[in-house]
């Protein structure tokens, strides 16, 4: 998994932010590239550029090895993301891909929990193999 972050700040501001704040939070340099999109053109392509404020909203995109978008989420600036949920989704998409589509992850799935194997037999029978409570347990 490769991480890329993007904002409208210049690469020089990225450098100083890393040096003066982020590296102090994590006790090392930011381990992924920090991209600059000063004219917002990338943000516009991804539908998350706020023209009025001149900034990019909290959009995040999961892209598979074929370059295909598998998932995205966009939040308005004041609310931060749930990183654990993003990681859970990435692991789920990776599992599905590795299974070549023979497995699917039901609601509430996380690594270690059971997957479903879609087939004609499963139609109408999910209730036999999966309980609603599994969507809510940790």
């Amino acid at each position: 998994m490769e991480v890329l972050t993007i904002s409208v700040d210049s690469i020089y501001v990225h450098k100083i932010w890393n040096e003066h704040e982020l590296s102090k939070m994590i006790k090392k340099d930011i381990p992924y590239p920090m991209l600059s999109d000063q004219d917002g053109s990338i943000g516009k392509m991804y539908g998350i550029y706020d023209e009025d404020a001149g900034v990019e909203t909290r959009g995040r995109f999961i892209i598979d090895p074929d370059g295909i978008v598998q998932g995205f989420e966009v939040l308005a600036p004041p609310v931060g993301r749930n990183v654990s949920e993003s990681i859970r989704q990435i692991k789920a998409f990776q599992l599905v891909r590795e299974s070549k589509g023979t497995e699917a992850t039901p609601s509430g799935w996380k690594p270690g929990k059971k997957t479903l194997k879609p087939s004609p037999d499963l139609v109408g029978n999910v209730w036999k193999v999966w309980e609603v409570s599994e969507a809510f347990e940790d």
Partner: peptide
């Protein structure tokens, strides 16, 4: 992009073959 002390140009297309997580922020 700024990446570990260096400035560079990065294209998304370079990442074909790997999972990519793109994160925009204000």
């Amino acid at each position: 992009a700024y990446y570990q002390g260096k400035f560079m140009n990065i294209s998304l297309s370079e990442y074909i073959g790997r999972w990519v997580f793109i994160c925009f922020y204000p």
